[in-house]
């Protein structure tokens, strides 16, 4: 009776009915062999630096965008307490706001627009007058001319008239 050497002929010591890779160790070996790569290469330094740089760049870009704000409108000019005066050469090509126009023309006699003044892209300005100290014979104060326009105000001229000249 000859010995039959089948495909599992190299399995010495194992019973012929016992399947190949049977037993606990065989199962563990199969699981490990199927999930763990044979060789795990460590991450290369260049790749680590590249990924870190990209991540840092994205982070800085995201942070920098938080500093950007949009300004669509100028803050409303303060029209309280002092009169608004359109300066010469005013070029408010935009649609004039209805609440500003009546204030600018409080004096009908001066409602005409003066001629342009060279080099002065003017707009609105306000004038305030304040008495800071006074006695019976003298007083002192402060006059403030505020440029409330969108352009520079150059060569302004302020005329003040009093009932009695001092």
């Amino acid at each position: 009776m000859g010995r039959h050497d089948g495909p599992g002929g190299d399995r010495r010591g194992a019973h012929r009915a016992e399947p190949k890779n049977s037993g606990t160790l065989g199962n563990v070996g199969q699981v490990l062999g199927s999930t763990v790569p044979r060789r795990v290469e460590p991450p290369r330094l260049l790749s680590v630096l590249l990924v870190s740089g990209v991540a840092l760049g994205l982070l800085l870009f995201a942070y920098s965008t938080t500093q950007i704000y949009l300004r669509f409108n100028e803050p409303p000019a303060e029209q309280q307490g002092a009169g608004a005066v359109p300066s010469p050469g005013e070029e408010e090509s935009e649609s004039p706001s209805p609440q500003e126009t009546p204030d600018q023309q409080t004096d009908p006699g001066n409602s005409s627009q003066p001629g342009g003044e060279g080099g002065s892209p003017a707009g609105l300005a306000t004038v305030s007058y304040e008495v800071l100290d006074s006695t019976d014979s003298a007083f002192s104060g402060q006059i403030t001319v505020t440029n409330t326009s969108r352009g520079a105000l150059a060569d302004w001229e302020l005329v003040l008239a009093s009932p009695t000249r001092r």
Partner: peptide, 15 residues
Amino acid sequence: QTPDSCSLNGDACSL
């Protein structure tokens, strides 16, 4: 006293 008239660059203003 306060001036009774004011003009800036030829346009009337109020005080």
